[in-house]
Amino acid sequence: MNKKIMIGCFFLWMALCSFQPLPLTIYFKFYFGGTILNLQNNYTTAQGEQITINRFQYYISAIKAIDEKGDTTALSNAHYLIDISDSLSHTIQVKSTQKIKRLVFTLGVDSLLNLSGIQTGSLDPTKGMFWTWRSGYIMAKLHGVSLQANTAGKRFSFEVGGFQDPFNAVRVAALEIEPTKKTIQQIIIHTDLSKWFDAIDPITIAQTPNCHQPGKLAMQLANNFSQSFTIASTQ
């Protein structure tokens, strides 16, 4: 009898040890206005400019949940490089928590990591998101072609970065979530790239086809980009 209890306890202990709460999966989906974004397609910006997008990457970090009481739970401390051309990067798994009222995440890289040597993983400079001519990560990158760009190859190139005031490009996105009793295990976030051109400041490619350094244009693009995210559904 004693043995049976011992064995039972052992299995229970094993089960407890291996128990892990189900993670929260966040899916990023890409849109231009109301339509699903396709890298080959032509789109018209709010300023009436014709564009095709061929590269879109951005960092998100410090993913947090805020509950009804206003308490914050850190869901992940990692940095994720979301790359439209790499579908694996569109899905990220973080810790789940109950009663999420608001999902908050940082767009860009923790300021300390810009000046503490060379990082690895998603922050490795070989990912093309670290400026080598001056210390600092690019927060978001949007490259494409536009008939209105007065540049070689009709290219436009927005590389939004900078981490020092007054030109700190890091932004925070806070997305409201409809209250639900069960633990949310899945969130689908829509990223609307049309926001780059009109969310707060109107951006015309004819006037500013390139952004490659911290400054006023980078601040405007960062503000616009930070408005790109909406929660499409939760489960």
Partner: peptide
């Protein structure tokens, strides 16, 4: 801003 990053430039 950091010696390790310097050679990349």
């Amino acid at each position: 801003l950091h010696l390790d990053q310097q050679p990349l430039a």
